[in-house]
């Protein structure tokens, strides 16, 4: 199956970012050059995992006579490996990077949640937590793919180190949540504080369904992320892709804060009121500080 959805490249492979870096007379992205040793260690983990995203398939196939039992087994395995949410859907071309081929029928989506309390420790702590979770997702998806190949079915891991599948359309389809104004998928319990690991496979599985619980309607009136974005990069207006509202972040305004300075920026997600359900005290403390320095805060 060939993909139909463009993916913006990361780092200097992104022509927008490369142009901005060169305009500053620099050769590398300032934020990446200033990463801590801990963060670099995490990035090396997913690079290392990429070598094992595929491998030999056990010729002694376990026949699936009860799809629902196999689905439960795979979800339990993903949770054992550290997933906080697990869902499954059929793979479609819109979930795959433009022009890339993925020869599988299903995608298993897993997410690992971040420790939201890091917002009180500053940008470096938030970045280290994000990268720790990305590395955990790489470990999880690599091990889950190997587990499925051992059952006798082809399986590829998809994570930060190697991927052809895009998390947001998959996470929507498996019912993890809805796309928020800040451009990340929002779950009613975890907000957008989670990262993706995925496995594509031909193992026969039952599929989950999308769930809508009012996120996009809420985002239409909330605007807290938009008003807390230091670069004013989150738009008022939305576009529609395949029937779903999307607010497309203006990277020319985002990058000066998220890539062209040393400090990590994750504010749009950190200020989202959907964090209040799981982290009421921390969210209120964090937002009090945001208010003190002049940003809009919600009444919760």
């Amino acid at each position: 199956m060939r993909g139909t959805t463009p993916r913006r490249m990361q780092g200097m492979a992104d022509p927008v970012l490369a142009s901005m870096v060169h305009d500053l007379g620099m050769e590398e992205v300032p934020h990446y050059a200033s990463r801590t040793g801990t963060v670099v260690g995490y990035t090396q983990r997913w690079v290392e995992n990429a070598k094992f995203r595929d491998g030999p398939v056990n010729p002694q196939r376990v026949e699936v006579t009860d799809r629902s039992a196999m689905t439960a087994r795979i979800k339990a395995k993903a949770r054992e490996l550290g997933a906080d949410l697990v869902g499954i859907c059929r793979l479609t071309p819109t979930m795959i990077d433009l022009g890339k081929e993925v020869p599988h029928e299903f995608v298993i989506a897993a997410c690992v949640t971040e420790d939201y309390h890091k917002v009180l420790e500053g940008a470096d702590a938030v970045e280290e937590e994000a990268m720790r979770v990305y590395a955990a997702c790489a470990d999880l998806s690599t091990e889950l793919a190997a587990y499925i190949r051992d059952l006798g079915y082809p399986a590829w891991a998809h994570h930060n180190g190697v991927r052809e599948v895009q998390a947001i359309p998959v996470f929507y389809q498996v019912g993890f949540g809805e796309l928020g104004r800040h451009g990340s998928l929002i779950n009613e319990k975890y907000g957008a504080d989670f990262r993706p690991g995925m496995v594509t496979t031909d193992l026969p599985l039952d599929v989950d369904e999308p769930r809508e619980f009012g996120v996009q309607d809420f985002c239409m009136n909330c605007n807290v992320c938009m008003q807390n974005c230091p670069g004013d990069a989150i738009p008022e207006d939305y576009v529609v892709t395949d029937g779903i509202k999307r607010w497309l972040i203006d990277l020319e305004k985002c990058y000066p804060y998220s890539r062209l300075r040393d400090e990590y920026c994750h504010l749009c997600v950190d200020v989202c009121p959907y964090n209040v359900r799981s982290h009421r005290t921390t969210f209120k403390t964090f937002m009090k500080e945001r208010k003190r320095i002049g940003y809009k805060t919600p009444k919760y």
Binding site: R2, T4, P6, P15, P93, L98, R246, L248, L251, E252
Partner: peptide, 27 residues
């Protein structure tokens, strides 16, 4: 149906994506 593919930052960048999309049988 009208579906937005994405936001692009130069005509050249967008044209490259259009060329790839036009190669797809589904499109």
């Amino acid at each position: 149906e009208v579906s937005t593919v994405g936001l692009f930052y130069s005509r050249e960048e967008a044209e490259e994506v259009i060329a790839e999309l036009r190669e797809l049988p589904d499109k």
